[in-house]
Design a protein around this nucleic acid. Sequence first.
DNA 1: CCTTGACTTCAACAATGGTTGAACGACGAG
DNA 2: CTCGTCGTTCAACCATTGTTGAAGTCAAGG
Lengths: 122, 122
Amino acid sequence: MTIPGTTTYTLTVGEVAAASGAAPSAVRFYEQHGVIQAVRTSGDQRRFSADAACRIRVAKVAQRVGLTVREIADVFADLPEDPEPGDWGRIADTLVREAEERMAALRAHLEQMRSGGRLCEM
Amino acid sequence: MTIPGTTTYTLTVGEVAAASGAAPSAVRFYEQHGVIQAVRTSGDQRRFSADAACRIRVAKVAQRVGLTVREIADVFADLPEDPEPGDWGRIADTLVREAEERMAALRAHLEQMRSGGRLCEM
DNA sequence: CCTTGACTTCAACAATGGTTGAACGACGAG
DNA sequence: CTCGTCGTTCAACCATTGTTGAAGTCAAGG
């Protein structure tokens, strides 16, 4: 168990980029938009904690199901510093629920079309 | 049953816009990008068939699940003129399958995270 | 200490998905 | 035939999601 408030911010932009598969520019972009957090060194360089790369990987998959960077950042905003598995679980649920709702809307629309028959011919 | 090659192109941009809930500018945009088709009057005005509004409504929902306009246009490209319910059925399946795959990727990623435990703490 | 590579910011560019406005043409009701 | 509404194109602009390059700074190894 990690001691609360002991999150270590040690990773550089390049390290997070390598670990997440994103370009360094994208890592900075995600930080600017609240998807990940960083502290600054005395020399003004970003230092990330280990979950940054994970957040980015999740963000990339979430983007594929139609969530915007802002929406993803909003979901992640509920994560405490140094999140526990349970915290991630709730985030996962939120993301899946949101995606499911969109899927349901797609399905419902297509189903209505299918059953309506002439719906698309008016 | 409609006689093949008898699709009637009678709807104006404004009518399709009203029927689909999209702005007229968006209707033109979707036509430019192959989501819908139009014929031109002698006076160079667009005339759409009845399925245009339907395609747009489907496109809007599909965009919400992460499909791009290009991808949606590609899916619709398989629709014949004056499509029958069966044709729409296959389109619907394609869209749902694509969306499902993205959902599955999201789920898989989140599940891996959940079970990995320390995956996000490295 | 000094070099080198990785970091910093900032601005420009790009692609996607549109909206808005100007200037002008088409079409239908009266 | 004329009027008003709707259509046309084109260019500019907007937000989103980044990438690229310039100019300069930090940090770690020799």
